[in-house]
């Protein structure tokens, strides 16, 4: 059991294999369950290529799995979790961030930043990274090599983005867009001006973009109730 776990550590790339496998199965199922159409012209129907692609996906998933299990090869040699025992799961990332926040507890945001709809806002301040990570912050960032990842930020950005998708039609682009910019900047660690300069930049950017697209480029973005008033 422990050996299995040890073997799996640093091999999160197997998740990619699983994903490829799943997609392959999906494509094959979709192709094989397709209703046959009477109007098929020629010997090759709409099924052939999906079957080929699906089959190839299965093969590639297996080959990649062998490649990963055989050892640390490939462009992303074993990810950071070799040195940093914390697995890449989101929950542990959260826990880590919280402890870091407790330790540093500096200019965190005002308690419970409530911004309509923009998912839950991050509570952690700009945690400067755990000591294990610091030495490798050399900025060169060779793709995928050895830098621990901040999946919490990614999850929060995803939330902000989904909120934008949900709000663009009811609130209109200027408001939703401003929220998107502000929320992203905040999530990405812009704290110093979070409630002074940032909202201003977000609003100006959003309104100007709206105006440029609407008037100069002729691309319709929803104005929302706000633009209805103006």
């Amino acid at each position: 059991m422990t050996t299995l776990r040890a073997a799996l550590r640093g091999r999160s790339e197997l998740g990619v294999c699983a994903l490829l496998l799943a997609v392959g199965v999906l494509v094959l199922t979709d192709a094989l369950t397709m209703d046959s159409v009477a109007s098929v012209r020629g010997p090759v129907g709409p099924r052939t290529v999906p079957v080929l692609v699906g089959g190839a996906l299965l093969v590639v998933a297996l080959v990649l799995a062998v490649d990963v299990l055989r050892g640390p090869t490939g462009p992303t040699a074993p990810p950071a979790d070799e040195e940093n025992p914390a697995p890449l799961a989101a929950e542990s990332g959260t826990a880590e961030a919280d402890t870091a926040k407790a330790a540093t507890a500096e200019d965190g945001p005002a308690p419970g930043p409530t911004k309509a709809g923009t998912a839950e806002q991050p509570e952690a301040g700009e945690e400067p990274g755990t000591s294990a990570e610091a030495p490798r912050a050399d900025g060169t960032a060779a793709d995928g090599a050895g830098v621990p990842h901040d999946w919490r930020t990614v999850a929060l950005l995803t939330g902000v983005f989904l909120a934008f998708a949900a709000l663009i039609e009811p609130l209109g682009f200027p408001v939703a867009g401003a929220l998107l910019f502000w929320g992203s900047a905040y999530t990405l660690g812009s704290r110093t001006h979070a409630f002074t300069r940032d909202p201003l930049i977000a609003a100006v950017l959003s309104v100007v973009t709206y105006a440029v697209f609407h008037t100069l480029l002729g691309v319709a973005l929803p104005g929302g109730p706000l633009m209805g008033v103006l």
Binding site: L157, T158, V160, F161, L162, F164, A165, A166, I168, E169, F173, G177, L180, F181, W182, S184, A185, Y186, L188, G189, S190, I201, L205, S206, T209, F213, V219, A220, L221, P222
Partner: peptide
């Protein structure tokens, strides 16, 4: 950097929406 990448997300979202005028495209983009 936060402004830079917030800006990229912002303009990417604008672009996706402008393709067909559907919020669905923004989710797909994500």
């Amino acid at each position: 950097r936060p402004y830079l990448y917030a800006g990229i997300l912002f303009f990417a979202a604008v672009g996706a929406y402008a393709v067909g005028g559907e919020a669905f495209d923004v989710v797909l983009l994500l």
